[in-house]
């Protein structure tokens, strides 16, 4: 029997795609593997051990940076999600209004302007404020992170809102629900998966940020990524691999959760 002609086939495409997946994962897999190396090299395998996880755990700097990273990510993703949900409610499902494009451009600015430019701008601006107020706390980092997290929290909420059936709210209104009751009983429950997805995205983005943090932080305010960036200048030990692996694990869990959340009852 003759083979059926496969209209979807394109010569070499599958090979390139497989290569692509391999290339995407191989470096990460190696990175994870060497985090369990018993030796102090990231190239020569000397047996399995949790030694570098223990080293990282005992490292005061790593501990401080971890706590700082988590504090910033929690605050920033919370603030960003709150602001983004409100902004999404204001900019979605309305008739076109004056300033809508401007509002949309502003919300998405962090996605368009190169991070290094924003970083430099914040360095200059916050330096001015630091001089005039004397405040040098984590507030600057939290504010900066909140700003660039907003579009990431905004987009899933907006997508959810756009996919939502307008008549549901009208039906509720028809059934004697006041505007506040409509929001609480109909809009919010429908929106919730989007809000959660947005908050998680914002959390991951904040946790991973290097460039803006590097420019905005005051002395002694290293987060995990900036700490790692600093360490790369020295001799690299699998300790970095161990920290990376933990961060990777957090991201992977979050992404998978995000992935399933954004598919809930659409």
């Amino acid at each position: 029997m003759a083979r059926t002609f496969d209209i979807r086939k394109q010569t070499g495409f599958t090979a390139l795609a497989i290569t692509c997946f391999a290339v995407l994962y191989m470096p990460i897999v190696l990175l994870v593997v060497y985090s369990f190396n018993a030796g102090s090299s990231i190239a020569i395998w000397e047996g399995f051990s949790f030694r570098w996880y223990a080293t990282a755990w005992d490292n005061d700097q790593v501990q401080a940076a971890t706590i700082r990273s988590l504090v910033i990510a929690c605050c920033a993703s919370g603030i960003a999600t709150f602001a983004a949900v409100l902004a999404a409610l204001a900019t979605t499902r309305t008739k076109p209004w004056k300033g809508q494009t401007l509002a949309f451009a502003m919300v998405n600015q962090p996605l368009m302007v190169p991070e290094i430019v924003t970083a430099v701008a914040l360095l200059i601006f916050f330096a001015m404020i630091k001089v005039s107020t004397g405040y040098t706390g984590l507030g600057y980092l939290i504010l900066a992170h909140s700003a660039f997290c907003i579009p990431f929290a905004y987009l899933p909420v907006r997508a959810r809102l756009q996919g939502m059936d307008l008549t549901l709210e009208q039906a509720a209104s028809d059934l004697y629900a006041t505007p506040f009751q409509i929001f609480r009983r109909i809009t919010l429950p429908q929106l919730f998966p989007g809000i959660l997805a947005g908050a998680m995205l914002a959390f991951v983005i904040s946790l991973d940020d290097v460039v803006i943090t590097e420019f905005v932080k005051s002395a002694g305010q290293d987060t995990l990524p900036t700490y790692m960036l600093g360490q790369l200048r020295r001799v690299v030990t699998p300790e970095i691999n161990a920290i990376s692996t933990v961060l990777l694990a957090i991201s992977v869990v979050m992404v998978i959760a995000f992935f399933f959340l954004s598919r809930v009852r659409k």
């Binding site: 603030i79 960003a80 709150f82 602001a83 983004a84 409100l86 902004a87 204001a90 900019t91 509002a103 502003m106 919300v107 600015q109 962090p110 302007v113 924003t118 701008a121 914040l122 200059i124 601006f125 504010l143 900066a144 909140s146 700003a147 660039f148 907003i150 905004y154």
Partner: peptide
């Protein structure tokens, strides 16, 4: 829109 705009003005557009 106010909260988002304040944050973005302070830490994105303004600077």
């Amino acid at each position: 829109l106010t909260p988002a705009m304040i944050i973005l003005l302070l830490a994105a557009s303004g600077p």
